Amino acid sequence: MILPIGDDNTGRRSTPYVNYLIIALNVLVFVFLQGLGTNERFTYAFSTVPQEIISGHDIGRPVRIVDPISGATAIIRLQPTPVSVYLTLITSMFMHGGIAHLLGNMLFLWIFGDNVEDDLGHGRYLIFYLLCGVLASLAHVFSTVAFGGNPYIPSLGASGAISGVLGAYLVLHPQRRVMVIMLRVLTEVPAIVAIGLWFLFQLISGLGMLGEGSQVGGVAYAAHIGGFIAGLILVNVFARRRR
């Protein structure tokens, strides 16, 4: 496993205000609205439920789910969504399932988001980030239906949008040095290695989950892969307009 802990910011020309704002919003939502993960009513009201996106109808009732690996059953008490269910494609990317989930996502965003914002500009970076997040969630919804996943399991987190940022970083700065912990050794590698190994892990894990449904163990690999591919493609459009 490879864990990035920093990158070379030489040449960055601007302060990444939008990136800081996104990080702050994620932390504030988790602390004050999700109650550090204890406020399930809020979380289940504003997370993305594939069945709601497919049907366009809110599902504000308990649903039974079965773990495809252990066979254990559980009840998820989905809550009424006070806004359009399609807006959960955006609200869900500012919520997290736990402190580790939040810290991991914010670490990646802190390291890679600033240089992408510097390249795209503040406004374009915000639009790019949100668009990648929405497309990542739609990729998760599609894979849930296509591969027989449970459409009532809610999805949340900034992982899909951040995956788009990683895709953009790979296109814009493939040779930029990234400091990582790899095999318990602190070293520097080009971004193409650090991000490439990350994506390879997502791809292998995602393919391994096809027989189990599109989301196992709380990880929506299809969202990671979809967001990454969206970032690879969209950054060319946004960067071109910037230039």
Results as ranks from 00 to 15, higher is better:
Q215F: 07
P174N: 12
S14M: 03
S163W: 07
M209W: 06
I75Y: 03
G56Q: 07
I2C: 06
A222C: 02
M182N: 15
R176A: 01
T38W: 01
N9Q: 10
D118N: 06
H96Y: 08
G231D: 07
L170C: 01
A158S: 15
G226W: 00
L89A: 03
L25P: 10
V134N: 07
G104C: 01
W110S: 09
G160N: 00
E212P: 00
I23R: 04
F199A: 14
A100C: 08
L234M: 10
G98K: 00
A146K: 09
A45V: 08
P190G: 05
M182S: 15
L25A: 15
P82F: 11
L138E: 09
F201C: 10
S92K: 04
Y169R: 03
F201N: 13
L203I: 10
G113N: 12
V134Y: 04
A230P: 11
F238P: 00
G226L: 02
A74P: 01
Q175G: 09
F147P: 04
L183I: 09
M1S: 14
L120V: 07
I192G: 02
A191R: 07
D67M: 06
L203E: 05
T38G: 08
A222E: 02
L200C: 08
V145K: 03
G56R: 02
G160M: 03
M182G: 13
A168S: 08
S137K: 12
D58L: 12
I204T: 11
G157T: 11
L203N: 02
A146M: 13
P151A: 10
F128A: 04
G113H: 09
V178I: 14
H224Y: 13
N39Q: 09
Q175M: 13
I23D: 08
G98A: 14
V171G: 10
L203K: 00
P50Q: 07
A24M: 14
P68M: 05
A239S: 14
V134E: 12
L102R: 01
S47C: 12
T73P: 07
L103T: 14
A191M: 11
V18Q: 05
E40Q: 14
V165I: 15
L107K: 08
A24L: 15
G208V: 03
M95G: 09
V145Q: 12
F238C: 09
L109E: 10
T73F: 08
G231Y: 01
Q34T: 06
Y129G: 02
G11H: 01
I181P: 06
I181F: 11
G227W: 03
N150T: 11
F147N: 04
T187H: 05
Q79E: 15
I69M: 11
R124W: 04
V66S: 13
G213C: 09
T48V: 15
A136L: 11
E212R: 12
I233K: 03
S92P: 03
S137G: 11
D118C: 00
I99E: 08
W110D: 05
V145C: 05
I22F: 10
G227I: 09
P190A: 12
Q34C: 10
R242E: 14
L203M: 11
L166W: 02
Y129P: 01
L166Y: 02
I75C: 04
